[in-house]
Design a protein around this nucleic acid. Structure first.
Lengths: 142, 142
DNA sequence: GTATTATATTTGACTGGTCAATGGATAGTG
DNA sequence: CACTATCCATTGACCAGTCAAATATAATAC
């Protein structure tokens, strides 16, 4: 018996396929990986932040965060120092250099997203965002 | 000047964050990685298929396909043989074993997706699927 | 019929994520 | 005050994707 796969069942694959396509293209277009861009974005609106709270904000494994930040540090865009009051935690912040570069990156990001969503109404973007948030909470307990 | 980031700009990050969360959970729940599941699914409704057309169907780099298929071959779920009429191409097919296993995997997949979309109406699922398709075509030219 | 070009698969180097284990620092408890 | 818990960051091992280069075969052009 042949038996095809429903739209529901394929949603996951569509999701994965789309992000797999997006990631390298984003990086080519903007000159920075999506994850590093997100880290810089998070730092942009703050002075100094715990590495662990930064990690929770971007929802990537701590090991990857450590590596990204080290890289961003050696490239001069972020600064890191230990919290003198608690030597376990590390404070992360943007350098002046990083603060300037993020502005450029942000332009590229906006261009990319605008292209990707050029035929989307604002309501659709909202709906999409909401649905993703719901999916996130629906699987968060797993 | 502090300057926050719009919903549009954050869509990408939301996307990436969600797939990053989904992938390991899917694998834990179903016992197979999403990519391998997709490969098996594709093979389920066919007799024999070119590796290259399979690759285009799942939209993953050929290098990764080769590695996945080799793994699935040594685990006894797929068979591969060269096309006698064109020794460049490789025919891939499910083994009996693979054909049985995919049925189980599919159950797990449905359970997982059902949980993830449990509060979605069918119309929402359709809308989501359509939007992803549009995004895909919107960035395909890049 | 050879030379070139194109196609299919494979391999290697690299990136970025996961988990599990480690080390150092702090907090809580008897 | 020790002793245990916990927390934070790091490290190592692994997996899955990318690109680019290599290989082998087929198709095309002269």
């Amino acid at each position: 018996m042949s038996c095809s796969f429903s739209k529901q069942e394929q949603i996951l694959q569509q999701f994965k396929g789309l992000t797999n396509q997006i990631s390298p293209k984003f990086e080519r277009c903007t000159g920075i990986s999506a994850s590093r861009y997100e880290l810089l974005s998070q730092l942009y609106n703050t002075e100094e932040i715990n590495q662990s709270t930064l990690q929770k904000a971007v929802n990537i494994d701590g090991a990857a965060i450590t590596r990204h930040l080290k890289q961003l540090e050696t490239s001069g865009m972020v600064a890191r120092r230990r919290n003198p009051d608690d030597n376990r935690v590390i404070f992360v912040s943007l350098t002046e250099e990083g603060r300037q570069r993020i502005v450029e990156y942000r332009k590229e990001n906006m261009g990319f997203v605008k292209q990707m969503l050029h035929d989307f109404t604002p309501e659709e973007v909202d709906a999409l965002s909401d649905m993703m948030e719901r999916m996130q909470t629906n699987i968060s307990e797993y």
